[in-house]
């Protein structure tokens, strides 16, 4: 009975992957490795290169992590050790509820609420700091790479906070007492003993969040600007692998267009699987060391 279930799930996963590869094969065969390195996405000239979307995915994810890691770790530490007990419960539940918000709602919120802030406050401030050059050049229109990164950061926070909090709370009390007994302050104990002790699990939380950010489609598609070219600035409109598929597959009628979108899906699937497997291995290794230490 249980074996059958496992077989069905494995068959589904393998069938899905095999079907994607089969349907993407013409694009891979036609463009070769240039599909991954090509920067043009132009149905009129039948040139399809996935690099802008791969880069867009990595960039939005990187921006999201730069925002989410410090905020997430700080929140997790507060929830695990710093806040009064009653507040921990309320705030912890609130953070977990953030995970239940449908992503289209994050997209709407990003577009209607955060994008105006981005245009009038966030982008001008960053532009000023970097002298309106390099990564902060170009028109400040609100939507684009930066906004997508900001919204992704909010979306991955529940994962980041919940897992980090759990691994932080799993740090044995004798470690904390060992540090205190040497004259460490609470702050020193947290940053030099508790966080390093939980580092593998925190890395797992970050990796899982990266996996989530890679695959997030709806919200990103609504706020990134959907421009299939390499972004040259944080403020540029761009596209990610997930957002280009969602935006174009219904109108993909030109030769190789649909096959190329499916080829992007294959690449995205591989990236997501790798990141998720890595994350699960990291989180599980923490569980094991914790059990063996207890």
């Amino acid at each position: 009975m249980l074996g059958a279930a496992v077989v069905i799930f494995l068959a589904l996963l393998l069938g899905l992957a095999a079907d994607l590869v089969y349907q993407a094969a013409p694009a891979f065969a036609h463009f070769g490795f240039a599909f991954v390195t090509g920067t043009q996405w132009n149905p009129v000239t039948t040139s399809y290169g996935a690099l802008p979307f791969i880069v867009g995915t990595l960039e939005t994810t990187a921006i999201a992590m730069m925002i989410a890691i410090p905020i997430g770790l700080g929140t997790a530490l507060s929830l695990a050790y710093l806040l009064p007990k009653r507040l921990r419960l309320v705030l912890g539940t609130a953070v977990e509820l953030l995970a239940a918000v449908p992503s289209v709602i994050y997209g709407l919120w990003g577009l209607l609420v955060v994008a105006p802030w981005s245009r009038t406050i966030i982008e001008p401030v960053i532009g000023f700091i970097f002298g309106h050059s390099g990564p902060a050049s170009g028109p400040e229109i609100g939507i684009g790479l930066l906004l997508a990164g900001i919204i992704l950061a909010v979306m991955v926070l529940p994962t980041m906070v919940a897992i980090s909090r759990d691994v932080l709370m799993a740090v044995p009390s004798e470690q904390i007492e060992g540090a205190l007994a040497l004259g460490a302050t609470r702050w020193q104990t947290l940053w030099r003993v508790v966080v390093p002790h939980a580092r593998t699990g925190i890395l797992g939380a970050v990796t899982l969040s990266i996996g989530r950010a890679f695959g997030e489609t709806m919200a990103v598609a609504m706020i990134i600007g959907n421009t299939p070219s390499l972004a040259h600035s944080l403020f540029s409109p761009a596209a990610t692998m997930a957002s280009i598929i969602a935006n174009q597959f219904t109108e993909a009628v030109e030769p190789f267009e649909l096959q190329s979108l499916i080829a992007i899906a294959v690449l995205l699937l591989v990236m997501s699987l790798l990141v998720n497997v890595a994350a699960r291995l990291l989180v599980r290794s923490v569980g094991r060391t914790h059990v063996s230490a207890a």
């Binding site: 044995p172 004798e174 470690q175 007492e177 060992g178 540090a179 007994a181 390093p196 002790h197 580092r199």
Partner: peptide, 10 residues
């Protein structure tokens, strides 16, 4: 302490 508790990350 009862059980040796060196800091494993150090």
């Amino acid at each position: 302490f009862q059980r040796p508790n060196p800091f494993p990350a150090m």
